[in-house]
């Protein structure tokens, strides 16, 4: 009697474990799995999409392109929509990890401005649809920094020791060092990269923290005087703290495009295309851009935003600056990763 009960319990335990495993991998046509940057959407937009289309969205976030790539490249993931940046899209295409989008299902692609179509990472607009764009620059607190900020040099200024915050993102932080040294931000030259690495190691004593999304809190809270920032994050911080200002350094910087694409491993291509199409609606894109601070590639959306659509930080006159787009470093990717690992490892308090 007791034996039977025990056996039954044991059997149930085993079965439920197995069921758990099965249930987790189950998916249906009504689910869209989206893998996007953290703090990169107005959550109400997701609910709106679910209401209008009947799809259910499973939404996950990453903090850097590299983290996303590591997960996609190694794991058995089944995301339907990814939102990587330009150079990462180029890499994913080169490594045959993306599938072509059926643009017949994305009629709203017509809303995207011509400036944001046919860019080098996806020259024929086959794999990606722009979600947001922006520049990389310096966000600083006017009450703490009384001199003119126009150069990357400011992030190496001893006066602001431990009040400088850097992005824990390899390409972006290395970009600042490369620009300052006068090298291309896409260099694969080992000597130039070694110099950039040394520059970043020299900077360590001045840096108050290496963070990603948490930098925003530090700047809004007045803890940081200067930081390297994406324009959209800067725009958001400036809306929360009026003492903050954003500039693009004179040495030049990076312009980036975060675009939606569909990985080869997607389970629900139709759902993914519906999601992408929805995000290209002017009113939706405007809602997102207003909420997150990044720049919409959809002119009609920008018009809907009124004053916010005219912000100098989010919509600079790009012809005035030396802006370069990141390209996939190819074989040098390992070098970039290694440099960043070693810079972080050299931090010695």
């Amino acid at each position: 009697m007791t034996n039977t009960i025990k056996k039954t319990i044991a059997a149930i335990l085993v079965l439920s474990t197995l069921l758990c495993v099965c249930a987790c991998s189950a998916s249906d046509d009504k689910t869209v799995r989206v893998y996007n940057w953290g703090d990169y959407i107005d959550d109400t937009v997701i609910a709106q999409f679910e209401d209008e289309t009947g799809y259910k969205v499973i939404y996950e976030k990453f903090d850097t392109n590299e983290t996303m790539y590591a997960k996609i490249a190694n794991g058995n993931t089944n995301y339907d929509v990814l939102v990587p940046s330009d150079y990462m899209i180029q890499r994913l295409i080169a490594e045959d990890m993306l599938q072509k989008i059926d643009f017949a299902n994305v009629p709203n692609f017509a809303n995207v401005g011509d400036d944001y179509k046919g860019i080098s990472y996806d020259p024929n607009d086959e794999y990606s649809v722009p979600y947001m764009w922006g520049t990389l620059g310096i966000l600083y607190n006017k009450t703490m920094v009384d001199e003119e900020v126009d150069s990357w040099e400011m992030l190496w200024n001893e006066k602001y020791k431990e009040r400088i915050f850097m992005l824990d993102s390899s390409r972006d932080s290395i970009c600042a060092a490369l620009s300052l040294l006068g090298y291309s931000i896409n260099t694969t030259d080992e000597k130039e990269l070694a110099e950039a690495k040394q520059k970043l190691i020299d900077q360590i004593p001045l840096v108050g923290g290496y963070l990603v999304d948490d930098i925003k809190d530090k700047m809004i809270g007045g803890e940081g005087a200067l930081c390297i920032a994406w324009a959209g994050d800067a725009e958001y911080c400036m809306s929360q703290n009026k003492d903050l200002e954003y500039i693009i350094p004179k040495e030049g910087s990076n312009i980036f495009f975060d675009s939606m694409c569909i990985p080869k491993t997607a389970k629900n291509k139709a759902g993914a295309e519906a999601f992408i199409n929805f995000m290209c609606k002017p009113e939706i894109s405007a809602k997102n851009a207003e909420y997150i601070g990044y720049s919409t590639p959809i002119p009609a959306a920008r018009e809907l935003m009124g004053e916010k659509g005219q912000s100098k930080a989010a919509y600079p006159d790009v012809s005035k600056y030396e802006l370069e787009i990141f390209s996939d470093a190819g074989d040098a990717n390992r070098l970039y990763d290694q440099i960043w690992t070693e810079v972080l490892a050299s931090i010695d308090n």
Binding site: E66, T67, A70, W340, L344
Partner: peptide
């Protein structure tokens, strides 16, 4: 704030970004 790097951080980075 990411300024004290421990071995756990280093391992995590290798499985993530690096």
């Amino acid at each position: 704030n990411g300024t004290v790097r421990l071995i756990g951080d280093t391992i995590e980075k290798q499985f993530g970004a690096a």
